[in-house]
């Protein structure tokens, strides 16, 4: 799980062009949206692209993203639950 979390952090930084953020700056349990990383609505859609690109997971209903993208940990748990880690 921890390996997956670290991998995800790097992928998120790359996919969202968070050039000034380092993996260690991201707390896996902190909320991704809101104050934390300052992510916006485009980033939310971009995370869906990330899951498809790296994990071949298609999210059919973007509304599901809200729960999945709560934090890096919830993302990792979701990927595990899909058997795609």
């Amino acid at each position: 799980m921890d390996v997956l979390i670290e991998k995800l952090k790097v992928q998120i930084i790359e996919q969202l062009n968070l050039a000034e953020v380092k993996p260690e700056d991201i707390n896996p349990d902190s909320p991704l949206f809101g104050d934390g990383l300052g992510l916006d609505s485009i980033d939310a859609l971009e995370l869906i692209v990330l899951l498809e690109k790296h994990y071949a997971i298609k999210i059919q209903n973007p509304a599901d993203g809200k729960k999945i993208f709560e934090s890096v940990r919830t993302m990792a748990e979701f990927i595990k639950s899909q058997g795609k880690s």
Binding site: L16, N17, I42, D43, L45, E46, V49, E52, K53
Partner: peptide, 9 residues
């Protein structure tokens, strides 16, 4: 086929 919203915008 992987269009990206952050590119399209």
């Amino acid at each position: 086929y992987l269009p990206s919203p952050s590119v399209f915008v």
